[in-house]
């Protein structure tokens, strides 16, 4: 375990110093701060629009960071040959993969946490500090964190056998598909005209691809006052889902990476 933690903490230390990530993060933080200034919007929807915008900034930034961070993780180690100095020590390959992943997720968590702090600060500055509102607000980033944990695992899995550029598009594609497909699936299911084969196929795809939409819980945050049924149960299930998915992907990554010649 200490080996994994060592690799993870080194990875974290490296990740939070990567300039490209810091630039992305800075742009996001800047956008979060100026977002409330965009008052060209219709007055009634302003609160909703700004919440939507800030949530969107956090989500997209997190996704971008998750992908950019993870796709280079293993290829960089190989290119810089640091991986040899690690793998020739008593470090199993699975420990290396898990350590790298945990480091990435820790870095992501830190960055999301940081953005959330800024979000709370900016919101409080604009409409006063309201603990109840803050509690609502943080639910968005909290769920994004799990969303990004899955996305990172997806990118990690791909990074064991494709190049970073291909991985970037693959992972982005899966992120979009995993977000959109849920709706497509719903419309297939609700449409009586859909034939059984299509429905079965859609169910199968839905079953397999990661459902990123599960972590988009911003709607009630953007438009407060909706009744939420079994919220705790929902969070429990979706976090459980994320953990299972991540473990599954990591095991696949390990299985591939174990055979991989670096």
């Amino acid at each position: 375990m200490s080996v994994i933690l060592s690799i993870a903490s080194t990875t974290l230390g490296e990740a939070i110093r990567r300039r490209v990530l810091l630039v992305i993060l800075l742009i996001a933080l800047g956008s979060l701060i100026i977002a409330p200034g965009l008052s060209v919007l219709q007055p009634r929807g302003q609160q909703a629009a700004i919440t939507s915008l800030t949530m969107g900034i956090i989500q997209m930034t997190s996704a971008l960071i998750a992908i950019v961070l993870t796709v280079y993780m293993i290829p960089n180690e190989i290119e810089r040959r640091t991986i040899y100095t690690i793998l020739c020590k008593p470090v199993q390959r699975w420990q290396f993969v898990v350590g790298k992943y945990l480091g990435a997720v820790a870095a992501l968590g830190m960055m999301i946490f940081f953005m959330t702090l800024v979000l709370i600060f900016v919101t409080s500055l604009n409409s006063g500090f309201d603990i109840a509102r803050v509690q609502e607000l943080v639910k968005g980033p909290f769920m994004y964190f799990w969303q990004m944990a899955i996305l990172s695992a997806v990118a990690m899995m791909f990074s064991t056998f494709v190049t970073p550029l291909v991985n970037f598009f693959l992972s982005s594609g899966i992120f979009i598909a995993g977000t959109v497909f849920s709706s497509v699936f719903q419309s297939f299911m609700e449409n009586r005209g859909t034939n059984e084969l299509t429905k079965t196929l859609a169910s199968a795809v839905q079953y397999i691809i990661p459902n990123f939409a599960l972590y988009n819980v911003q709607n009630p945050i953007i438009n407060p006052g909706q009744e939420i049924v079994n919220e705790f149960g929902y969070y429990l299930q979706s976090v459980g889902y994320a953990l299972l998915y991540v473990v599954g992907l990591l095991v696949v990554a390990i299985l591939i990476f174990d055979r991989r010649e670096v």
Partner: peptide
């Protein structure tokens, strides 16, 4: 093992 021209974590 000391690889050829390795880069260590620069930070």
């Amino acid at each position: 093992y000391l690889p050829e021209k390795p880069y260590y974590y620069e930070h």
